[in-house]
Design a protein around this nucleic acid. Structure first.
Lengths: 327, 327
DNA sequence: TGTCGCAGTGTGAACGTTCACATGGACCCT
DNA sequence: AGGGTCCATGTGAACGTTCACACTGCGACA
């Protein structure tokens, strides 16, 4: 910067002003400075800027397993939104999600000088950790956060599960079974809730749900139990991978989908449309989710306060894995 | 830091020394300083450290579509390795991959003060961009890089494709068809090469390959062409998603897998084992890949030089989608 | 017994910015 | 003509570290 100043015959301060488009610079001076910058290939030192301003134009993300489709897509949405806002993203991926690890990760990012953090913590434990964070630092949770102590962007899981369940009931099924996700996941619990309340509201019997772990393998295993229930004609599975496993087991058991059993999944992963048969599922707009939560965070960083809650609506996508009940 | 110094009755420099475990501090002094740090909950300002040392303990990653299984897993491997080495990761995700965008992304990260960058740029164009980067900054490419001008960590695509093809030939198939990935992807081209040379080496005829775009949809569409080839009994598909699409089309066309057609995929995505039938495929250890490339980068950052090339071996996973040719 | 070396500590400058304030001139108004 | 205002610019300190060097005392060695 000193070099640029010297070359263009002004002080370092004027260079700084040009850099920030200050109105108090004469056009010809500005031009001279810009020329010098170009000539010297000057690039402002963001680290020095961060030191003096206390702002780094960097945001942190702490996430769990970015290999899963949901978190990965959300992360991408966050990244794009951050990029568009001129922010850089720092990432931390936890190997296990519990109170100390989440707190440590946020602290670490904070020490690194990020202006704010978004936590993708769909587990109960992670959600819980957020409540124990200092309130003097902008944090937003995505996809399940604690009550209202922290701003949250989330997809309405209950509504999605309700839509899936209602779809099956509308097709004439007497009731709907459910393959759930792991108990520690808030989303899993909310999907159970949406499913159960919809059944109750319709006066349908509520069968016990089966507990999976999101993997295709668990869907496959739990399918064994399901095929023994002669009554079952419709299942709402808490994610598409488990639905895939279930689909395979049914195929191996000689059961036809949707003739013998109608299936609805959740997430709408890109592969779902090419399952055999193509899977009816509930689409979550993860990209939008990420974008929205980043905007909340940005507002916070800029000084807004008060808890916020953004809810993205899921959408039922009807394909070939569901059909009217046989009578 | 000044506060800590004052509280423990030493100078700021001694505090700094304690911070860095300098041997030239008397044990009791060290103890006093540490106590003061705890009492004041002192956290060193990494930004100031970065300013003066020129090192930020931050590494950059520029990637393309982190929603895909491969890049996402690689990213995770990189992240874990970085974390273990005490580094933080800054991420940039490109919306389109070409020379200017890649160069701009690297520059941006560099301006942000990262110590080095890994580029996940599987496209020809991205690979190309790397050649036009200043050599005075540590960059490593993962999964396809230019010749030898830049260090690279990669999975041996040719060997993987060869293993897949040979597996099918060994089962007695006269030849093997191929559904390839998009031409701009280096991996796609290398898989074609592995497939073609293996066929040639075995004296088998080389049918024209079909050009897909990695999506299940394209596998489905291209399947139409494939079922019209009465001769075809074996196909090597360049990734698992396209194999899924193909599987569905075959099912709809009344063709049985593997009875009428044997199929091998590539990647071994977690879902592959639950396709109908379970997919024989080539597993890539993306986590390992990420870890390895990060270690190369770290070595570079610490001052090592000279191009390096690390190759991870893929592994054929035989499942139920391949069977011996009928005679 | 003088001096060399080293352990333990302190001092001030530097890193590259921005911030708060000071300066000087042009213009306008009374 | 004098004073206020605003524009354009400059000056020095501050941000929180590390770095290079200087200093003090103590033990060892010749």
């Amino acid at each position: 910067m000193e070099d640029v100043a010297e070359l263009s015959g002004v002080s370092h301060q004027t260079v700084s002003r040009v850099l920030h488009d200050s109105p108090h610079v004469r056009p010809d001076t500005r031009e001279r400075v810009l020329a010098a910058m170009r000539q010297l290939d000057y690039r402002p030192n963001t680290v020095a800027q961060a030191l003096v301003t206390g702002r780094s134009k960097t945001l942190g993300v702490v996430s769990y397993d970015t290999t899963l489709y949901g978190p990965a897509s959300t992360l991408l949405g966050i990244e794009h939104a951050a990029h568009d806002a001129g922010y850089v993203l720092s990432m931390t991926s936890l190997r296990s999600l519990n109170r100390p690890t989440v707190i440590a990760a946020v602290q670490r990012l904070r020490d690194q000088g990020v202006d704010g953090v978004v936590v993708i913590a769909p587990l109960r434990a992670g959600v819980d950790a957020l409540r124990h964070l200092r309130a003097d630092f902008p944090v937003v949770a995505v996809e399940a956060g604690p009550d209202d102590s922290i701003p949250v962007a989330t997809v309405d899981q209950v509504a999605g599960a309700a839509a899936a369940t209602r779809h099956l009931l509308d097709l004439g099924h007497k009731t709907v079974w459910h393959v759930a996700g792991p108990a520690e996941w808030k989303e899993a619990e909310e999907r159970i809730e949406g499913w159960r309340t919809t059944l109750k509201a319709a006066g349908a019997p509520v069968p016990p749900f089966l507990r999976g772990d999101w993997t295709a393998r668990s869907g496959y295993e739990l399918g064994r139990t399901l095929v023994q229930e002669a009554e079952a004609t419709a299942v709402f599975v808490a994610n598409d991978q488990m639905a895939l496993g279930l689909l395979r087991l049914l195929h191996e058991s000689g059961k036809a989908v949707p003739r013998d059993l109608s299936i609805v999944g959740f997430d709408d992963i890109p592969e779902a449309a090419y399952f055999v048969p193509p899977l009816t599922t509930v689409r979550q707009d993860f990209g939008e989710l990420g974008r929205r939560c980043l905007h909340i965070l940005l507002a916070r960083v800029e000084g807004a306060s008060g808890a916020t809650r953004v809810v993205v609506a899921p959408e039922l996508v009807v394909r070939a894995s569901t059909a009217a009940a046989r009578r």
